[in-house]
């Protein structure tokens, strides 16, 4: 093995370690933040589905299809074919 390939493979290893140590953790944190923000929005718009009175339900009616579609995409990503009944998703 030439010095050059050895150096290149060491660099790749170092890069992978750095990625695992720092970038992956950061990415995970960010992903969690995205999910949290999206969940909050979903909860705010679909309050009445949770049994809470929503004073502006009418004003946010046209968000409902998109939020249900989001929920659908999410449970499919999580590997579940169906999620709840038609009252929740599918």
């Amino acid at each position: 093995m030439s010095l050059r390939t050895r150096l290149a493979s060491a660099w790749r290893r170092a890069e992978a370690a750095h990625d695992q140590l720092f970038v992956a953790r950061w990415r995970q944190g960010l992903r969690r933040e995205v999910r949290r923000q999206e969940d909050t929005l979903r909860a705010l718009v679909m309050l009445e589905s949770l049994g809470v009175d929503n004073p502006v339900a009418y004003e946010t009616l046209d968000l409902v299809p998109y939020l249900v579609a989001d929920l659908h995409a999410w449970h499919r990503r999580m590997g579940q074919e169906s999620f709840g009944d038609p009252g929740v998703c599918c």
């Binding site: 009175d53 339900a57 409902v64």
Partner: peptide, 11 residues
């Protein structure tokens, strides 16, 4: 279903 529930909301 979600739309029907929202449409029944007070207000």
């Amino acid at each position: 279903r979600h739309l029907a529930r929202a449409a029944d909301s007070p207000g």
